[in-house]
Simulated assay, not measured.
Amino acid sequence: MKLERSFYSRDTILVAKELLGCYLVHETPDGITKGKIVEVEAYKGPKDKGAHSYKYRHTPKMDPLYKNGGFAYVFQVYGNNYCFNVVTQNENMPEAVLIRALEPYEGIGLMGKRRNIDLSDDSKSKFKNLTNGPSKLCQAFDIKTSLNGVDLCGDELYILSDCSSENNREIVATPRINIDYAEEYKDRFWRFFLKGNVFISGNYRTNRDLRD
């Protein structure tokens, strides 16, 4: 079932944790790609020194952040790399969840083609490398700034709930990655991932195990 607006228009930390285990889908002329969300980071907007919208910063490219929850916020980093965020909360409350890693599920050959990875030898390391990072998954799913502001309740880029969700799955919480500029906010435990999943994007120095 496709996630509805009401799912996104809630507390950002809650949305971040509940996105874990859901499936991101992108329908393109080249084909469909689908992957399970296994790692996310929450960004708490105006009060969060790690967020683009800290102190209500607002540029035209950031317009989607100021909409109701359920829109995509896509920005460019390091040349032709991109990051995909899910906008949360209500209008003019610019908070979002960064999707950091996916477990490939459908359209794996297309993901490999887009990532220029030869999957013919069944290498586990190559397979894991398809979507274990925010820019990697954007390349594999063909997510670029042309999708900035797209409605995630639409039919192009959207998220499906996990109808077979495991009640006993464990979530690990750690500080977010690569935001040393965020001062004391770099130590907030706002990065969440599914414990034991091999597709997470990096190691962690401290953790808290949480249950849904």
Rank of each mutant, 00 (worst) to 15 (best):
T174N: 04
K128Y: 03
I117W: 02
M1I: 02
P60R: 07
Y8R: 12
L102Y: 09
N129E: 12
D162K: 01
K61H: 14
V150N: 08
F189I: 01
A42D: 08
F141N: 05
F7Q: 09
R115D: 02
G21R: 06
E184Y: 15
A101S: 15
N90F: 03
M1N: 06
N148C: 03
K47S: 13
Y78F: 08
K126Q: 05
L194C: 03
N148W: 11
E4N: 05
P134N: 07
N197R: 04
P29A: 07
F199A: 10
V77W: 01
V87G: 07
F7Y: 05
Q89V: 00
Y66L: 11
R10D: 02
D212A: 03
E183R: 15
N80L: 04
K186W: 13
Y43L: 07
I179M: 15
G154R: 12
E41Q: 15
L147C: 00
Y78W: 04
S161F: 03
I37E: 10
I159E: 02
S135Q: 04
G21F: 13
A51V: 10
L160D: 00
V40Y: 10
T145K: 06
K34W: 07
N168H: 08
Y8F: 15
R57D: 02
D162P: 00
R176V: 15
I171A: 09
Y158F: 15
P104H: 06
I171K: 10
G202A: 14
R169S: 04
L147F: 03
W190L: 15
Y8K: 06
K49C: 04
G109Y: 05
K128Q: 13
L3G: 12
L147Y: 07
R115F: 11
Q139C: 01
N203T: 09
Y105L: 00
K49H: 07
E106G: 04
Q76R: 15
S161M: 12
L3K: 02
F141C: 09
K44H: 14
P104Y: 03
D121K: 08
L65A: 00
N92D: 13
V74G: 00
I159C: 01
Y73V: 06
L20E: 00
S201G: 08
K36V: 11
N90I: 12
Y23G: 01
R205F: 14
K49W: 06
M111S: 01
N68S: 13
P60L: 08
E41R: 14
Y23C: 02
K195V: 03
I37H: 09
L152E: 05
D180A: 11
L137M: 11
N116L: 10
K126C: 08
P29H: 07
A42W: 15
F7I: 04
Y66I: 10
N132M: 03
F192H: 01
A140R: 05
K124N: 11
K144C: 06
P64M: 12
